[in-house]
Design a protein around this nucleic acid. Structure first.
Lengths: 231, 231
DNA sequence: TCTTGTATGATTGTATACAATTATACCAAA
DNA sequence: TTTGGTATAATTGTATACAATCATACAAGA
């Protein structure tokens, strides 16, 4: 009967196996590997200094995620995240982030609440100064806190993936001064609702936050890259 | 430059590689492999008549899904779907199925619409006769049609997984005569709304359908297996 | 008895070998 | 020139070999 510490080492980014998977995944999500590009096991292996075996294992995972497509006896081809995917993800997030905020309202720990408040304070500071790089990091972390606090493995896993899939778009839109301060304001609303224990208001605010982010994305900057296919 | 038929052979259930993955997955989801059970690469390989390599690749995929946990240099342990997971999935589905129905309203093809209508007719017949086995199959298919018709790779993939994860519970609750006829009635409402092109009504009906299924599940039969952990 | 160290076996991690399949090049025939 | 076929090369699929790590058993000592 197994009785190991469950928290540690699940698909660790720093273990060799995790490294190969994450490296390829990052290269797909960041656009290093482009749409329809063929990924050869030996080439990728050489890039990362490993043999075909760990690469193949990573390929299987990426296929399951839908980031690549493996055609038997032919090869692995980059699918990546298309503009359509990003739009769909935002619509799905606009339903699910609220649920996460709702659950976080009743499950958030004292430490998580404190980190969230600190996150808001810092974000407001950096937003006023126009420090876009820090804003992006804090924005990421804000959502991560909610995912962790919602106490649902399923929802956390799903939203974390979505969050990573749309990273490139988010970075672009958050680098707009106007949107970054709006976003921070919306984060505060969510935080206040969670702190007040008002799950309804937290859900509504979180959903609205994603809808606003989506609208902003559509208005600015998404259309111009529409033609290229991948984000 | 790759230019293959994209539809075919993605993680095919009948290719060797897909077979290993799906077989292990089914054994987890159906409860053949129990919670915390250790899965040994050689044993599983012998069961399926393959070497460690394909088994390891399947393990990596299952780990990504969260169905098993791999502890480096130790082993693979079944996580499976817990009661808590099922509850969470139903809440998430109650937000997402509506979205799928909404999108299906504008994207459904003539063929899909016809299959859906036929599905309802057959379901009503079998529901009145108490043919529970057929009801389960038709219920599955009804939701599958919506997933296919919603025209969103992301949403389809997600809902299909959820659907499979809660299969055991659904089979149990659908075997109740009362719920199966209620469910069929709700399916008809969704179908009528989609056919009428009323996306709002389709979304509302689909979400309510999942909420009803969830409530019924809580009332009947989920509590008694609560203690066992896995569904 | 309990603890600790060591040896042995079991299991996983990775690399490599071999088989099967597919892509490419080249030549011959129309 | 174009087409078709064959040989060769490249690539993937799977099995296996070897290394590294971990679990277990057992004995020695306190």
């Amino acid at each position: 009967m197994a009785n190991y510490d469950v928290k540690s080492e699940v698909n660790d980014k720093f273990s060799l196996r995790g490294r190969v998977y994450h490296k390829i995944r990052d290269n797909i999500l960041s656009g290093v590997y482009k749409e329809n590009e063929e990924l050869k096991e030996v080439s990728i292996g050489e890039e990362l200094g490993v043999s075909r075996t760990p690469v193949r294992e990573a390929f299987r995972q990426l296929e399951l995620e839908g980031l690549i497509q493996i055609i038997p006896n032919k090869g692995a081809y980059v699918t990546g995240i298309t503009i359509k995917d990003v739009e769909d993800i935002y619509m799905m997030r606009s339903k699910l982030e609220g649920l996460a905020a709702r659950w976080a309202t009743t499950n958030i720990t004292k430490e998580q609440m404190e980190e969230m408040e600190e996150n808001i304070y810092l974000s407001e500071f950096h937003a006023s100064k126009g420090h876009m790089e820090q804003i992006a990091v804090l924005d990421n972390r804000f959502h991560e806190i909610i995912y962790e606090a919602c106490n649902s493995k399923m929802l956390e896993h799903q939203l974390r993936d979505f969050h990573e899939y749309v990273l490139r778009v988010r970075k672009r839109t958050l680098s707009q001064f106007k949107r970054s301060s709006e976003s921070t304001k919306e984060h505060r609303e969510i935080m206040e609702a969670i702190k007040a224990g008002d799950a309804d208001r937290a859900e509504e605010a979180a959903n609205r936050h994603i809808v606003n982010a989506y609208d902003n994305m559509i208005k600015n900057g998404l259309k111009e890259i529409y033609e290229r296919g991948l984000v």
